[in-house]
Nucleic acid binder design. Sequence first.
DNA 1: ACGTCTCTCTACCAACTGGTAGAGAGACGT
DNA 2: ACGTCTCTCTACCAGTTGGTAGAGAGACGT
Lengths: 201, 201
Amino acid sequence: MAVVATSTRGRILAAATELFGTRGVDAVSLDEIAAAVGVRKQTVLYWFATKDELVDAVFADAVAQMGAVIEAAVRAAPDEPLARVDSVVRAVFRAAVRTPPLLGLMRELSRLPEARAARLRERLVPLVDRAVAYLGAEMDAGRVRRSDPRLLASLAAATVTGIATDPEALRAVGWHANLVELRHLRTELRAFLRAALSPHA
Amino acid sequence: MAVVATSTRGRILAAATELFGTRGVDAVSLDEIAAAVGVRKQTVLYWFATKDELVDAVFADAVAQMGAVIEAAVRAAPDEPLARVDSVVRAVFRAAVRTPPLLGLMRELSRLPEARAARLRERLVPLVDRAVAYLGAEMDAGRVRRSDPRLLASLAAATVTGIATDPEALRAVGWHANLVELRHLRTELRAFLRAALSPHA
DNA sequence: ACGTCTCTCTACCAACTGGTAGAGAGACGT
DNA sequence: ACGTCTCTCTACCAGTTGGTAGAGAGACGT
């Protein structure tokens, strides 16, 4: 369900993803999206009857993308918790570099009316449940630091999305986005999560 | 410079803090803020000549509050890195419980026009610099896991603001806000950071 | 040559946005 | 009793918002 950027519909979705993710849903107008695509607002409304419909499509697409990325990363990694975390972090990073506003969008979820957010969240629930169950089992096996697996999963996720979506935190320490710094950040993030999850504390 | 919620001005600031923090600056209108306070929009504009002026005041207040909270927490803690982190986490938690949108506001910083964000950031720069220098020194002393102190500070901060401002991450694992769960979350967060910072990985 | 379908356009609209102008009500010192 | 200052109000404005109505241009099967 990835965005096909050649069709008008696909280009609208891509532009909306970008703008919603970086500036917030409410702050972006249909006119602005249309201008970014190079069409009139009414063309946007031809493809998506209302703004809400566009918002839903953008989020559904983003959630599906994130879900697929994480699922693939888990499947590709060996059955060892720290390696899996590494694999997921790599994959999420790759996705975030390819589509920078993706993680920002994930965060915008919390500003959506609860009913719609819940519907979108459903898509991710199985992933989360599996991650929590996996962490719990690995704790029993002594391969992950003993703690509440639900909250451990949330904390790890918050660290990843937090660092990826909050440029202020990085700018405040003189960090600037470029390939070398990005690789450095990824290395540090993996070490951080490894340390936070390791059983020997 | 804490908000005095009895004066009209103070009540406007408090309402704007709440709304800006939870829904974003652009998405909240002056009418809405006025309605929340129980006055007309023109009363808001009497106290703050423009919306920008109100936004600046809200952010300046929030940044000052956060700065004061963190500074006090650091001074109160013994000179031992994990204890200091504990102390800061406690203090930030307490502030976030008292004024829930505070951390959300911190995140909104990144959506402000760069010039204004930079001006507000200045207030926090000395705090950040000191934290980074401190972490670096403690790494040399072997009391903190060796890594890039700038990024370690950012990752720890991202974890705290991430978990505090992204209710989705917590709701997805069945977490609900109440005093017991909150205390549990704080405990887990402190253990998480302890593990991530500890030298023995 | 014709109708049909897909797509984008121009021209509007009511509601809401941030902001201006200025009146009026009360408290207070003289 | 008077003016002055502080504060909130009603009335209004131009620009922008999401959305409607409907025309027209091109591709395509017949």
